[in-house]
Write a protein that binds this DNA or RNA. Structure first.
Lengths: 298, 298
DNA sequence: GAGATACTTCATTTTTTCTGATAGTTGGGG
DNA sequence: CCCCAACTATCAGAAAAAATGAAGTATCTC
C-alpha cells in the first residue's frame, strides 16, 4: 500500500472516473488502472465494480474511502506541520528557568510571545541551575535560563543580566540603622541561606568568605518566600535578589551591601554542538535577549 | 514522503540506532540512512542530530514521531480492516426491509447475527417494495427483503417465504359469524387498505378483482398498527398479514379467506450483475435463507 | 591510540513506476 | 440496429527509484 495509490484511489472515487483522475493527477490513464490494481492486489479486495464504462465502489471500496481520506489528511498535516516548524510558527519549547527569574521576569515575556504564536507549545520547568543545566545537557530540555553552568557539561552560556542581591532585615534590626552595610557587619548575624548548591547561596558565600566572613548560620530555607517571612518574623537577616523584595515586605527593610560583588549572573544555556533546536527556539532566544538584556542590572 | 520511509523513521526512533533498525527491517544499513535523508529532504527539516555514532531526535524529529505513529497505525488498521472484510467479520450491510417483515420476523434474526459479529455495521431502511428495490438497483442499498420487484430494474429475486393474509374484523361484525369468508362476502364491506403501490394492497386488490369484487372503499391507512386500531374501533374490516394479528387485538377476530390466493411472496433482492457486495453480505444472506425459509407459510 | 562500533557516501544492480500505443467493452444516437 | 464516442485494460519498453555492498569517516572504549 502506497500513499500515491491511495491518493489515486481517492481521486477516482471523487471524480467517479479513472480518466478524470488521470487528468487531475497528471498521470497517464494506464497508471490509474495500475494503481487501483496494485491496491486491490495488495489489500486482497476488489475496490471497484467495473461495468465496462463506469466504475462503482464495492463494499470494500466504500470502507476504504473514509480511511484513505483520514490517512491522506494526516499525511498532509505532517507536511504542513513540518513547514510551520521551519517558519517557527509551531514547535515545542522545553524550557528550564530558575525560580526568581521564572516568577519575576519571565511572565512579561511569555505572554506576548505565546499570544502571538498560539500553536507553539511550552513546557516550563522551574528548578535550580544545576538541575536545569543537567537536563539541557542530556536533551531533556531545549533551553535553560539560569546562572553559569558547570563547565564540564559543555554548554553554551550567554549572559542576559545581573541579578542584584541586597540584604533583607527586620525594621528593628541593628543592621537596619545605617543606609548601607559592609560584609564585616554581617559577621555574627544569623543569616538565612537557601539550600546548598543553589547559585544564590554560592554567590553569597563566595563574596562573604572573600572578605573573611563565614556566613553559615545553621539555617537553610529552600524558598525565597519562606525566607522573606522568616525575616519578617525576626528569625534573622537574608541576602536575596533585589527584585524579590521590591518593595520590601511589611516590617522589613533592604540595605545595599558595600565592598562585595553581590550579584548573580543570569543567562541562557543551550547545547552548542549539534543544536537540536528548531526555528521557534531561535525566535524565542531573540525574544529573551531583547526583553531581559534591556532591564539588566549592573 | 513514503510510508516505507516513515516506518524506517519510526523504527530508528524506537531502537535508537540506524543499525538496529536495519536489522529489524531487513534492510542494508545504507538504506536506512537513505530513507532518513529522503525524509529530511522531502520535509525540509533535520530529523536527527548526528553526533558521529549516536543519533538523537531533533525538535522536528520529536514532532514527527507521534504523527508518524498515528499514520502508520492508520495504515495497518486499513489492512486489517480489509482482511476482516474478506473474512466477513466486518463490513457494512445496507438493508431495506418491508415494514411487517422488519418488525415481526427480522429482530429474531438480527440479534444473534450481530451479537456474533460486533464489528459489522447495519443500516436498516424500512419502506415499501418499490422504494427498496429502486434503492438496491441504484446501489444505495446492498440488499432488500420485500416482494418481487419490477422486472425492469434487473434485480435478482429469491423467494424466502409466503406471508399469509387474513381478514381482520371486529368481533361483532357480520363476517365474524362464520369460520371462513369468501371474496364475494367482502363486496359492499368497508375494507381498510394500505397506500397504493404497497405490495400488500396490490395482492389484495388482484385477488379480489379476479373474483369480481372491487375492494376499494375510499379509506387508505398507511400503517398496519393504525389499521388494527381502526378495525378494533369498528371502522371496517381489513386484510392483513396473519402474523401481524397473531393473536388478534382485543375485540377483533381473524378469518381465513377461501378461494383466493391471498398471500404475499417475500424474498430478498440484490443486484445480480457485478455484485458489489462483500463477504458479510453473503453470510447475511445465508442467515436469511436459513432463518426465514424454515418458517415459510404455504 | 588502536580497535570496535556506527553512520555516510557512492557506484552498481535490481526493482518499480510510468508511459504510449493498442485492444476491448459499453452505452447512446442516428 | 449498428456505429461512434467514451472508458477502461493490457503490454512492452523507457525512465526513475530503491536497495545493496564496499569503502570511507567519525566516535567511543579500553
Amino acid at each position: 500500500m502506497e500513499l500515491r495509490q491511495l491518493l489515486t484511489f481517492q481521486t477516482v472515487v471523487r471524480t467517479g472516473s479513472l480518466l478524470r483522475a488521470a487528468e487531475e493527477l497528471q498521470y497517464a490513464q494506464s497508471t490509474i488502472t495500475l494503481h487501483i490494481q496494485q491496491l486491490e492486489a495488495d489489500l486482497g479486495v476488489k475496490l471497484f465494480a467495473r461495468q465496462g464504462k463506469r466504475v462503482q465502489l464495492t463494499e470494500a471500496g466504500r470502507n476504504l474511502r473514509d480511511s484513505a481520506d483520514r490517512l491522506l489528511e494526516e499525511a498532509t498535516r505532517i507536511q504542513e506541520m513540518m513547514a510551520e516548524l521551519v517558519q517557527g510558527e509551531t514547535g515545542h519549547i522545553r524550557l528550564g528557568v530558575i525560580e526568581p527569574t521564572a516568577s519575576l521576569r519571565l511572565p512579561g515575556l511569555l505572554v506576548p510571545f505565546f499570544t502571538k504564536r498560539p500553536r507553539v507549545r511550552l513546557t516550563l520547568e522551574v528548578g535550580g541551575t544545576q538541575s536545569i543545566s543537567y537536563q539541557v545537557a542530556t536533551g531533556k530540555l531545549d533551553l535553560g535560563v539560569c546562572s553559569p553552568p558547570p563547565a564540564h557539561l559543555g554548554l553554551h552560556f550567554e549572559p542576559l543580566f545581573n541579578e542584584a542581591l541586597v540584604l533583607l532585615a527586620p525594621q528593628t534590626h541593628s543592621l537596619a540603622a545605617s543606609e548601607t552595610v559592609t560584609p564585616d557587619q554581617l559577621a555574627g548575624q544569623r543569616l538565612l541561606l537557601t539550600e546548598q548548591h543553589c547559585a544564590y547561596r554560592e554567590v553569597t558565600e563566595r563574596a562573604l568568605l572573600s572578605r573573611g566572613t563565614n556566613p553559615y548560620s545553621g539555617i537553610e530555607i529552600g524558598s525565597m518566600e519562606a525566607i522573606k517571612h522568616a525575616v519578617q518574623l525576626g528569625l534573622g537577616v537574608a541576602i536575596v535578589p533585589a527584585l524579590v523584595v521590591t518593595p520590601p515586605p511589611a516590617g522589613t527593610v533592604t540595605r545595599k551591601i558595600e565592598q562585595a560583588q553581590l550579584f548573580l549572573s543570569v543567562g541562557f544555556i543551550r547545547r552548542n554542538e549539534p543544536a537540536p533546536v528548531g526555528r521557534v527556539h531561535e525566535v524565542f532566544l531573540a525574544e529573551l535577549r531583547e526583553h531581559l538584556c534591556e532591564r539588566s542590572a549592573g
